[in-house]
Amino acid sequence: MALFTELDIFVPAYELSTLCAIYTGSMPKNHRSMLGLTLLENCQWSIKCLRLANSARGAERLRHIEDLREAISMIEFSLRQCVDRRLKLITRAQYAAAIKAAGEFGKKATGWKKQTENALVAPSSRR
């Protein structure tokens, strides 16, 4: 088992988390303490789910991957709120960069989920 920081999925996860931290730092204080904090907590939760999924096996891994995908969708929703024309907490360019990283992160999580599901269905060749 590789360290979770060495997995391919960690690259977009780290990029997304870093972008969200940068964007949160430039938010007005009243939004930073609510929306920004939620965004960062979901980023941290996604990294935690990634770590737990890497160390788990079988159905438990699948559960952690589902939690990971939920965290990614919550991050995407928070980013959408941040770019809303009424709030304008981040620019469209910032939103595009973060959504690109979130999309890549989500695709890799979905692929990992499918691979795990297939491994659960297929008979084990190891003895």
Rank of each mutant, 00 (worst) to 15 (best):
F4K: 08
F4G: 05
F4W: 10
T5P: 00
E6A: 15
L7R: 11
L7I: 07
I9N: 01
I9D: 01
I9L: 11
V11P: 00
P12Q: 09
P12E: 06
P12R: 05
A13P: 01
A13M: 12
A13W: 06
Y14G: 00
Y14H: 12
L16G: 11
L16C: 13
S17F: 11
C20A: 15
A21R: 15
I22F: 06
T24M: 08
T24S: 09
T24I: 03
G25W: 14
S26G: 04
M27H: 07
M27T: 10
M27E: 07
M27R: 06
M27A: 08
P28A: 10
K29V: 14
N30W: 04
R32M: 09
R32W: 05
S33T: 12
S33G: 00
M34Q: 06
L35G: 09
L35V: 13
G36P: 04
G36F: 07
L37P: 00
T38N: 15
L39T: 15
L39E: 04
L39R: 07
L39M: 15
L40H: 04
L40T: 15
E41K: 14
E41D: 05
E41W: 09
N42I: 02
N42A: 02
N42L: 00
C43Q: 02
C43P: 01
W45G: 09
W45T: 09
W45S: 13
S46M: 02
I47V: 11
C49D: 02
C49L: 03
L50N: 01
L50F: 02
R51P: 00
R51D: 08
R51V: 07
L52R: 14
L52M: 14
A53R: 10
A53N: 08
N54G: 07
S55C: 05
A56Y: 12
A56P: 05
R57M: 10
G58F: 06
G58A: 03
E60F: 08
E60A: 12
L62G: 00
R63E: 06
R63Q: 06
R63C: 04
H64R: 15
H64D: 07
H64P: 01
H64G: 01
E66V: 14
E66P: 00
E66K: 11
L68Q: 14
L68E: 12
L68Y: 08
R69W: 05
E70L: 07
A71P: 03
I72C: 06
S73D: 11
I75L: 03
I75D: 00
I75K: 01
E76H: 02
E76W: 02
F77P: 00
S78K: 04
S78M: 07
S78C: 14
Q81S: 08
R85E: 10
R85I: 05
R86C: 05
K88D: 06
K88M: 13
L89Q: 09
L89W: 12
I90C: 06
I90V: 15
I90P: 05
T91A: 05
T91C: 04
R92C: 01
R92E: 13
A93R: 12
Q94F: 04
Q94W: 02
Y95Q: 12
Y95R: 04
A96D: 11
A96K: 13
A98K: 05
A98C: 10
I99Q: 14
A101I: 02
A101T: 03
A102D: 02
A102I: 01
A102N: 01
A102T: 05
G103V: 08
E104Y: 04
E104R: 06
E104V: 11
G106D: 10
K107T: 02
K108W: 03
A109T: 09
T110R: 12
G111K: 03
G111R: 09
